[in-house]
């Protein structure tokens, strides 16, 4: 088991669910209001309607989450079990454990793209 560490993680809340992103991949964090510029919503991952939140931007993709906090300490990245390797189009990079709680770590651009290509269409 390769021990990869991740330094700088954005711990994001979406409703009662939770997502984590590698902070290094996030270019810009902005605010997003309903009726604003159309963008991918993390809420659509959990089949929830969109709401105001923070807009995370990476490369040309961006994703809106409800709220976020930054974990700056280096964390070991746990590998994805084989059974979950293909979910969300391979956007799941692994897991980080913060204070006993397991957070799924995603690639922001890949997840945003997956949401934009698969889920937004379904929702809309």
């Amino acid at each position: 088991m390769s021990a990869v560490t991740v330094t700088g993680v954005l711990l994001c809340r979406v409703g009662a669910e939770q997502l984590a992103f590698d902070a290094n991949q996030v270019g810009h964090i902005g605010a997003w209001e309903p009726g604003g510029q159309p963008t991918a919503h993390a809420r659509s991952l959990f089949l929830m309607p969109s709401a105001a939140g923070k807009q995370l931007t990476s490369e040309a993709e961006s994703l809106v989450v409800d709220s976020l906090e930054v974990h700056a300490e280096p964390l070991p990245r746990l590998p994805v079990p084989l059974a979950l390797a293909s979910v969300t189009g391979g956007a799941l990079l692994g897991f980080v454990q913060v204070a006993g709680v397991l957070w799924p770590l995603y690639g922001l651009a890949a997840l945003a793209r997956h949401v934009r290509q698969h889920l937004e269409v379904e929702l809309s």
């Binding site: 088991m1 669910e17 939770q18 997502l19 991952l45 959990f46 070991p76 746990l78 590998p79 994805v80 079990p81 059974a83 979950l84 979910v87 969300t88 799941l92 692994g94 897991f95 454990q97 006993g100 709680v101 397991l102 957070w103 799924p104 997956h114």
Partner: peptide, 26 residues
């Protein structure tokens, strides 16, 4: 308490960490 993974099939209830390993629950 399990961590849910979005996009996973319904029989995969979530994952939990056990002895430094992520274990999916079926």
């Amino acid at each position: 308490a399990l961590t849910r993974v979005p996009g996973a099939p319904g029989h995969l209830l979530g994952v939990f960490a056990h002895r430094g390993e992520v274990v999916p629950v079926v």
